[in-house]
Nucleic acid binder design. Structure first.
Lengths: 150, 150
DNA sequence: CGTGAAATCGACCGTAG
DNA sequence: CTACGGTCGATTTCACG
């Protein structure tokens, strides 16, 4: 991982379809050398995948919500993790320090859908207490990328 | 936005380098038709960009942190938004409902670096109160994609 | 890491439904 | 308005120096 690798990653982040020749011109390397570096970065997992960033509104996911969760005291924690991974609406789920045990980030079409999400969590007996925080606007939005289901 | 568009987006999400012919074979369309649809999805902004998903550890960003922020009472809110957008460590910044005004998601190399981040926020006179939450592990991690600085 | 050849791919056209 | 097939230039890829 040298400086050239970082530059290549930066170029690919901005536009993953730029040609090897184009990238090579910017880092003073031949197309095949750039190709070899990308191949290596991908093979060793530094680059996880080539993907597309999507517009949440166009995907019908305009409402961004964070839910703090304290698990029900006899909830199966690994079952909860599997549940979280399988739910399409759950973009992130983190085990966190502080008063709550999990922080879950979800995207839904509109605020009323939050209720169904919480109801399902409750029906699965995972939920102890929770606190819901809705994002009103996002000065820094974060990329919307579909979950990796591999 | 029909069902074929959604399938194409799903294929591109999993691997944005798949050939038009390959995708076309899976959705029963000719390569040029697939190309036309991707071109349209990109032009209308549904696909924002082609990019790469990165391994946080390989990028030296193993520590994921959420910071709740209540702005200093005479902080310039739009200046804060510009600051947030410019900070490389800030992956997301949302104006939220509830007791706090902003929720900020950052990634740093290690926990000690959080202190510097908070100190800078304070030095800029943005910070009223704050509460820091560290992610211990992430059952559903969320894609790491470099910020779009366009 | 660079060069050059070969295979593959994507961009563009006219045309058709 | 969207899909198709064919052509051409560009791009990736591979063996070799």
């Amino acid at each position: 991982m040298d400086d050239i690798d970082r530059k290549i990653i930066s170029f690919l982040s901005a536009d993953a379809r730029r040609s090897l020749a184009d990238i090579g011109g910017n880092v003073n390397l031949s197309p095949s050398s750039v190709n070899e570096r990308i191949r290596r970065l991908t093979a060793q997992g530094t680059i996880r995948r080539f993907t597309v960033e999507l517009d949440p509104a166009a995907m019908g996911l305009e409402t961004l919500v964070y839910v703090w969760i304290a698990l029900h005291e006899d909830a199966d924690e690994s079952a909860f993790r599997r549940y979280a991974a399988a739910q399409a609406a759950i973009l992130e789920c983190h085990h966190v320090t502080g008063r709550w045990s999990y922080l879950v980030k979800i995207r839904v079409g509109s605020p009323p859908e939050i209720e169904g999400f919480l109801a399902d969590l409750k029906a699965q007996k995972f939920l102890g207490r929770s606190e819901t925080v809705i994002a009103l606007s996002s000065p820094v939005a974060g990329a919307l990328v579909q979950k990796d289901n591999s």
